Amino acid sequence: MRKMRTALITEANKGVGLEIARKLVDEGFFVFIGSHDLQKGIEAVKELAAEGLGTVDVVQLDVNNQPSVDAARKEIGVKVDVLDLLINNAGIISDMPQSALGYCVYSINDVFERNYYGPTRVAHAFFDLMRKSAKPRIVNVTGDLGSQGVASAFG
């Protein structure tokens, strides 16, 4: 019998991701704090440990960088055989609204890279560990800009 369920949260070193980590640890999960800035991830782990939440570890993970994702997969795979929960929390927003003539293609590219390709890249890298879970889950965290209804209001 496995000891505890495992989770990976991208960009969990602050904000919503860090709060999700707190809640998951309370629910009995071992949580990997994914952070593109390793030092900020280490600080988040220390913060949680100071609160008595010690079943966490940090992994350097930049969702925009395939070698970083691959290295995170390798590192986590050495520590656990199964990943039960993947929470894609890393995301950015663009300056909204943008007119058809006033948009910046580089800004749009950055948004797609982090918000679409990043979660896809991470999910694909961890599918093998998730397939070993009895109840694997992927959760994609989004704000209002992920809503088709809200986004259409900018049209």
Rank of each mutant, 00 (worst) to 15 (best):
R2P: 15
K3P: 01
M4I: 13
L8V: 13
I9L: 07
T10C: 07
E11H: 11
A12E: 10
N13L: 12
N13W: 12
N13H: 15
K14A: 11
V16P: 01
L18Q: 12
E19G: 13
I20D: 02
I20A: 11
I20V: 14
R22Q: 08
R22V: 08
L24G: 10
G28R: 06
F29M: 04
F30T: 14
V31T: 14
I33N: 09
I33F: 01
G34T: 13
G34Q: 11
S35D: 09
S35L: 04
D37M: 13
L38N: 02
I42M: 04
E43L: 15
L48C: 08
A49S: 10
G52I: 10
G52W: 02
G54W: 02
T55H: 12
T55K: 14
V58Y: 01
D62F: 07
N64T: 15
N65H: 15
Q66T: 15
P67Y: 12
P67D: 09
D70K: 13
D70Y: 06
R73G: 11
K74S: 03
I76R: 02
I76T: 01
K79D: 12
L83T: 07
N88M: 11
N88K: 11
N89L: 03
I92F: 02
S94M: 07
D95E: 13
D95H: 14
P97E: 04
A100C: 06
G102N: 07
G102E: 02
Y106K: 12
I108E: 12
F112Y: 09
F112E: 02
Y117K: 10
P119K: 09
R121N: 10
H124S: 11
H124K: 15
A125R: 05
F126T: 08
L129Q: 12
M130G: 05
R131N: 01
R131I: 01
S133K: 03
K135P: 00
K135R: 10
K135M: 03
N140S: 00
V141R: 00
G143T: 14
D144M: 11
D144F: 01
G146D: 04
G149F: 03
V150R: 03
V150P: 01
V150H: 03
S152Q: 07
A153D: 00
F154P: 00
